[in-house]
Amino acid sequence: MSLLKPKEKEFAVVLLSSGMDSAVCASLAAQEYELAFLHFQYGQKAAKKELTCFYKMIDYFKPQKYLVAELPFFKLIGGSSLTSEELEIPNGSEKQGIPSTYVPFRNGVFLSLAVAWAEVIGAKKIFIGVNEIDFSGYPDCRKEFIQAFNQAVNKGTKPETQITIETPLINLSKKEIVELGIKLNTPFHLTWSCYRQTEKACGRCDSCRIRLNAFKEAGVKDPIEYA
C-alpha cells in the first residue's frame, strides 16, 4: 500500500459573471483545479439577476471558495449603458465604433482584483471568458490586452507569486463555446446573458442576439426563457 499522499489540486480563480462564457470557463477549470469563484456587482442593470444565477452556480459547482465584490464606482463614473440610467441599452448591434455597453476598462479592474485575491489564496491561474471572435468589440477582451496584463501581473506581484491569466475561449466562436459547454455538462440553464434586468431574457440586446445565434448554429435549444 502506498504511503504517498495524493497531490492536492491547486486553486484557480474563475471570474464568474453568470454568463455562458464564464460558466464554460468554470467547467474547464474544474477539470484540473480547485475552484474559487469571483463575482462582481458593479451597478450593472442586470445585477440582481446575475447574482441570483451566481449563487445557483455555487450550488452546482460547489467551489472551495467564493467572493462577491461590490464595485459601486462604475455606476458613479458612468459612460456605459450597462450602468448609467441616462443611457438606454440598444437593441441589436451598434454598427460603428465601441458599443455603448462597453464599461470603461472593466476587465482591467476585474483582473486586478482577481490577481490580488489569487495572490492571497495561492491560486496559480485566473480564468476569464473573454472572446475575440463573436464579441461586441470591447477593447479589453482582446488577446493583446490579456498578454500585456499577464506581463503587468508578473511585474507587480511578489517574486514567489506565479499567476497566469487563462483565456481558453479567446479563439472560439460562440457556436464552438456552446458545443464545448455541452460536452462539459455546463449548466447553461443557470446562466444569464441579457443586459437587462427582466424576468425573462429580452432577446433583443446585443448579448442576447449573439447567444441566441450561437445556440441556433450549434443546433441546440437555448434552455433559458426569452420574452
Rank of each mutant, 00 (worst) to 15 (best):
A218Y: 07
I163K: 12
I210N: 00
A152C: 14
A148L: 12
E70F: 15
A23V: 05
F61W: 14
R106F: 07
R204H: 09
P72E: 06
F110C: 01
R142N: 09
D140V: 03
L71A: 13
G137P: 08
G137V: 06
K124Y: 00
T52L: 13
I163E: 06
R204S: 11
A152E: 06
E8L: 09
L212S: 13
S93L: 15
E199L: 12
S22M: 02
I163R: 11
V153C: 07
G43D: 03
K95Y: 15
F73E: 01
L172M: 15
S81Y: 12
V120F: 10
A116T: 13
G108Y: 04
K45I: 13
E34R: 15
G97Q: 02
Q151Y: 02
E166M: 06
T167N: 04
A12N: 08
P168G: 05
T52R: 11
M1R: 13
S27Y: 06
A218C: 11
P168A: 05
K49W: 02
A26Q: 03
V68L: 07
K158S: 12
L38K: 02
N91M: 04
L184E: 09
F135N: 00
Y195M: 09
A118N: 01
I77R: 09
S17D: 04
E70D: 15
S81P: 05
A148D: 14
C141G: 00
E70H: 14
E85W: 08
K125F: 00
V24Y: 07
A12I: 07
S136Q: 06
A26W: 12
N154R: 15
R142I: 08
I224E: 10
L169M: 10
A214I: 07
I163Y: 09
C194S: 07
V115K: 09
E70Q: 15
N154A: 15
L180K: 08
P104N: 05
I77F: 14
K183C: 01
N171A: 11
Q64I: 03
L180W: 01
A148S: 15
E10T: 15
N131W: 07
S80A: 13
G122P: 05
N185S: 02
S81C: 13
A26I: 06
E32F: 09
F105S: 00
Q197G: 02
K216P: 00
F188L: 02
T83A: 14
S136A: 09
M1A: 14
Q41D: 14
K175V: 04
K49C: 07
V178H: 02
F105L: 00
R211I: 05
G129W: 11
K158D: 11
F110W: 01
Q162M: 10
L184D: 08
E94D: 04
I170V: 12
F135W: 06
A46M: 08
L15Q: 02
L67Q: 12
N154V: 14
K124M: 01
E144L: 14
P139V: 05
G92L: 01
A114H: 09
